[in-house]
Computed example of a mutant assay.
Amino acid sequence: MRLTGLATLIALVSAPAMAETPLAVEIVTAKAVPDERVYSLTGEIRARDELAVAFPQGGRIAEVLVDAGATVAPGAVLARLDAVQQEQALRAAEAGLSTARADHRQASENLDRQEALLDRGATTRIARESAEDALRIAEGALAQAEAVLDRAKKALADTEIVAPGDATVTSRMAEAGQVVGAAQPVLELALGTGFDAVFDVPEGMMTLGPPPERVTLNAIDRPEVTFTGRITEVSPVVDARTGTVSVTVGVEDPPETLSYGDPVRGSVTLSGPAHVILPYTVITALADSPAVWQVDPATMAVSLKPVSVERYETGTVVLADGIADGAMIVGRGAQLLYPGRVVRAVEAGQ
């Protein structure tokens, strides 16, 4: 009996000493929050309405009168071709028209004279009809001379590029002395005052959901300048070289300092259903899936819970399912755990 009592006493005395000390770990409370993601890309400001202007005929450029960035008014001459041949053709056409007019006037007077003589019986009807035929021929020659003159004037006018309206020169693609062909672009104009921001969006981003209604824009060199835009066009073709899709954003409230070619940053916020977002330190693994250590608030014992990861972000993990809102999850210190291990919470960084 003495030996039995002694053993019991030793067991009672040593039991607290043999009990496992709770492991100090960081405990994070899971909380489902709206899934909002902000995406930013860099684009370029371009003209909403662009026009490439060219000469309707080929030739050697005599002068280009504007540079990129210049603002021009309607009717302003922007560039000229060497027009020596056209000027000579115009002078020849003017001389031909003067001759045709003189011949027409002479034929008309001759017909009047023949009709007067015929009334007095001083000439024959054949002579009168011959004078009428000569007038008809003179009329045809006059009409032809006028048409030749019109063509010569148009050919001379085609040696100049004229601004079709208020515009800004965005690109100069030819220089004086250069020989250009018909319809070869010489200048690029921005018509009106509208601005577009054009972005090359990675193809994968186009699958994230419908595009947002508004895009927030910031000038790269002036981040404090903020304005907005609306997506107006999405290219149906993926660029095979870059794997991107061209997206055009119409600027709605451009600042006064905005100009063509300025780099801008476009930002959009995409919202989705609420997800549990936890620090990356909570993630461990089972044999076939990611997992986290969940704490039983009654006993403070841990157990492994498989989870499904929606995506990984910098410093955090967004869970698709597996953890309920309000669950207690072990953060730092999870590498020392095993199922049933009792833990206690400490402040982060301790």
Score class of each variant (00 low, 15 high):
L117M: 13
G266E: 08
E313D: 04
L118V: 06
D325M: 04
V295I: 01
T314Y: 04
I220A: 02
R151A: 11
G5W: 07
D221F: 04
R341I: 09
E213S: 10
D112K: 14
D221V: 08
E115Y: 09
G326N: 10
K153D: 11
S308Q: 13
R80H: 04
K153S: 10
A68Y: 03
I61K: 00
T226R: 15
P223C: 03
I137S: 14
L156P: 01
V249Y: 10
P263V: 02
V77D: 02
A138I: 04
S303F: 10
V292K: 13
D262C: 00
R344K: 08
V225S: 14
V292D: 05
T4A: 13
V268E: 09
A291K: 00
A327L: 01
Q86G: 13
T244E: 02
I161R: 06
E139P: 03
E115R: 12
R91E: 12
V53Y: 03
Q144W: 00
I277S: 08
A145E: 05
V268S: 11
G272M: 14
A62Y: 02
V234E: 07
D221C: 00
A152K: 08
V342P: 03
A324D: 15
G96A: 04
D82N: 02
E252S: 06
L187H: 00
G272D: 13
A92W: 02
P16A: 03
V169S: 05
P339W: 01
H275K: 15
L12D: 06
A334C: 14
D221I: 02
L149G: 01
G204R: 14
L142K: 12
A174Y: 00
V148T: 07
T242K: 08
G349L: 01
L97P: 10
R136F: 01
G96L: 00
S14I: 13
V186S: 02
R105I: 11
A95L: 09
A348W: 11
V72T: 07
E203S: 07
E188A: 12
D321G: 07
Q88M: 14
T207V: 09
A345W: 07
R120Y: 07
V198K: 03
N110C: 00
L142G: 01
R113E: 14
V346C: 13
P263F: 00
Q88R: 15
V343Q: 08
Q85L: 14
L304D: 04
A92I: 08
A7F: 14
R105P: 02
T257I: 11
P297M: 07
V13T: 12
E63L: 03
T226E: 15
